[in-house]
């Protein structure tokens, strides 16, 4: 790999984004890359926008990804995918969980909902890969495994084999959660196999 690859993971507090970022970063390190991860713990415990960024390659300096240079955006929520559109590199890929967490600002009636979310997503992400991650995780009986379903989908892009992901996952999670998360990872990987995720190029 010649250059540094940039992954931005976005969503809402409580969706396990910090955990999947950690697993991705550790997997990249296991695969022999230099890696940096950056996240902001804001004031919101729950329900706020969350972003985490992972960069890996031969030598990584900045922990922050410049706007317009994200190779892969992993979005856990369609509204958040739209919010972070400016991060995307031309030709970058977006993996978007087909799921919406309605903001409190909307449910309380203080702000207007997006009128045509389907249309906006299609317009701003014409080539996005839509992953039914929350649905698949629910099928496994644990909606909180949505993050590992997305990780499974992302594993088609990462320039290292899924076994490296699974090693990192096992090292990071408590033993009692490993089996469930492995199943979620496998489900995501299988579901995304036919969706045309492009492998990272150097």
């Amino acid at each position: 790999m010649e250059r540094v690859l940039n992954v931005s993971l976005v969503g809402v507090g409580g969706q396990g984004i910090l955990l999947i970022s950690d697993v991705l970063a550790q997997a990249a390190a296991r695969a022999g890359h230099d890696v940096k991860k950056s996240e902001i713990h804001g004031m919101a415990q729950r329900g706020g926008s969350v972003i985490s960024q992972v960069r890996f390659g031969p030598r990584v300096f900045s922990p922050i990804i410049a706007d317009g240079t994200t190779d892969v955006l992993v979005a856990f929520d369609r509204l958040e995918a739209l919010r972070w559109r400016h991060l995307m590199a031309p030709g970058g890929q977006a993996l978007i969980n087909r799921h919406d967490v309605i903001p409190v600002s909307v449910t309380s009636g203080q702000q207007a909902a997006v009128e045509d979310l389907d249309g906006l997503v299609a317009r701003f992400y014409p080539e996005a890969i839509m992953v039914p991650a929350t649905e698949l995780a629910q099928g496994l009986g644990q909606v909180r495994a949505t993050n590992m379903v997305m990780a499974g989908a992302l594993s088609h892009w990462t320039p290292f084999p899924p076994a490296v992901w699974l090693d990192a996952l096992r090292a990071r999670l408590p033993a009692k959660l490993v089996a469930l998360n492995e199943r979620a990872f496998a489900a995501g990987r299988e579901a995304a196999a036919a969706l045309g995720v492009r492998r990272a190029t150097a």
Binding site: A44, G48, H86, P103, S105, A112
Partner: peptide, 19 residues
């Protein structure tokens, strides 16, 4: 200047709230 597609305007925000 980098080629950046800005996010659509007017998206509802997610301000922090008491749980």
């Amino acid at each position: 200047a980098p080629a950046i597609t800005p996010a659509p305007a007017g998206l509802p925000t997610r301000p922090p709230v008491l749980c």
